[in-house]
């Protein structure tokens, strides 16, 4: 079985460097090819994804090659599907190449040394492999799921607490009403809407959002550090969140 996978920032077939180091020096082009040799038995079904068309490569008849944009949530979901369904290491390598270095960056930004960020990022990615089957593409995008894993790892490690979280099977859970609009998540629209909203935020709001999410600081600490009044910190965050909510409403109505 030959697997040829080129995706995003790593190239499994030609390099043994899984570190993602190339991501720093040279950002990948947006459209790379994820190709699966036909005899691998892992050819990707179209799965109803409109934007994913099989492309024939010259000289490789019968071999379906899927063009993926390495940065889209759908690509990540496809990789997760393969990991969960077939413990596909090549798919994991691709996912690792994208998210490993980002999880490490996130942990460093929240105060970890490079060494402990590396260690925790590895632990987080171990969880990604082990819990792949529990990933529900209808609930969240892959980047969100991995963010929550990395965040909880950080809380466990540095705050020495288990983050209290709700239990989906709790008999006390008040269920969603029958009209809950959950289809938007399945189609990745929430992620897209938020991505667009973040991209168009004024710099000062985007920066505040990143501080709030990445730096493990209370809003009052952010105020002290930046010299901004607490009210300004909070209002910038609220404006940013208000803008995202507005963007999401367009999907829900």
């Amino acid at each position: 079985m030959r697997l040829l996978i080129q995706m995003g920032i790593i190239d499994v077939s030609s390099s043994m460097d899984y570190s993602g180091a190339t991501a720093v020096a040279e950002p990948p082009p947006r459209n790379r090819v994820l190709s699966t040799e036909c005899d691998s038995g892992l050819a990707v079904e179209k799965n109803g994804h409109k934007n994913r068309r099989p492309v024939r490569r010259p000289g490789k008849e019968m071999c379906r090659t899927i063009v993926l944009d390495a940065a889209t949530p759908d690509d990540h979901k496809e990789l997760m599907r393969r990991i969960a369904a077939a413990q596909d290491k090549a798919a994991f390598a691709a996912l690792f190449g994208h998210f490993g270095p980002r999880v490490k960056a996130y942990l460093m930004r929240s105060g970890s040394t490079p060494e402990s960020a590396e260690e925790l990022a590895q632990e987080a990615m171990v969880m990604v492999w082990r819990k792949a089957e529990s990933f529900d593409p209808a609930q969240a995008s892959v980047s969100t799921w991995i963010f929550t894993i990395a965040r909880n790892k950080r809380i466990d490690a540095y705050r020495r607490m288990n983050r209290p979280d709700l239990d989906e099977n709790d008999p006390a859970l008040v269920p969603d009403g029958p009209t809950a609009p959950d289809t938007a998540y399945a189609e990745g629209q929430v992620s897209t809407a938020i991505r667009e909203a973040v991209a168009t935020l004024p710099d000062e709001q985007a920066e505040m959002l990143k501080k709030a999410f990445f730096e493990d600081k209370a809003h009052s600490e952010i105020a002290a550090e930046t010299g901004l009044p607490l009210g300004t910190v909070k209002s910038r965050l609220r404006l940013a969140i208000g803008r995202m909510r507005k963007q999401l409403k367009e999907f829900e109505e």
Binding site: G20, A23, V24, T144, T148, Y185, R195, V198, K210, F214
Partner: peptide, 19 residues
């Protein structure tokens, strides 16, 4: 869930640090 999704988008956007 929306807030978590914001975290995911920001994670996706962060400048990576080589493993």
């Amino acid at each position: 869930a929306m807030m978590d999704e914001v975290g995911g988008v920001l994670l996706d956007d962060i400048a990576p640090v080589a493993m």
